[in-house]
Simulated assay, not measured.
Amino acid sequence: MTRVDHGLVTDAGPPLELPPTDLGATLRALRRAADLSQRELAARSGVPQTTVSRIECGRSAGPSFRTVERLATAAGGRIVIVPPPTAGQGPPVTPRQLRDAAGRHCPAHLDAREVREPKDWPGAWWAHVPGLSGYGSALPAVTYRLDRGHRDRDRDRARVRRECRIRRHLDPAVPATSWRFVAELPDGELVGELRAHERSDELLIGYPLPGRHHLVLDGVLVAPAYRLLGVGRRLVAALTAEMARRDVPSAYAVTDGTGTCLLHRCGFRVESRDAAVMRFDLTAGGEPPRRW
Rank of each mutant, 00 (worst) to 15 (best):
T10F: 01
H169Q: 09
G13E: 00
L23N: 07
L215P: 00
G192Y: 04
E69F: 03
T67E: 10
E69Y: 04
S53F: 09
A196C: 03
W179D: 04
P92A: 06
T177E: 13
G131Y: 05
Y135C: 15
L228D: 14
G192W: 08
R167V: 15
R279W: 04
V191F: 02
G103W: 02
T143S: 10
L235M: 08
A237T: 11
Y226K: 15
V231C: 07
G123T: 11
L139A: 09
R291L: 07
P48G: 07
A43E: 04
P48S: 04
V93W: 02
A102M: 05
H150I: 10
L98H: 00
L71M: 13
P186E: 03
H264R: 15
H150Y: 12
V47W: 07
A108G: 00
A158W: 05
P210S: 09
R99H: 11
A29Y: 00
R59E: 15
V174L: 04
R44Y: 00
G136M: 09
P288I: 08
V236S: 08
A75G: 01
C106H: 00
A61W: 12
R227W: 14
A176Y: 06
M243V: 07
T94N: 02
A237E: 14
S272R: 10
L190A: 06
R113E: 09
G286H: 02
P48K: 04
A138S: 13
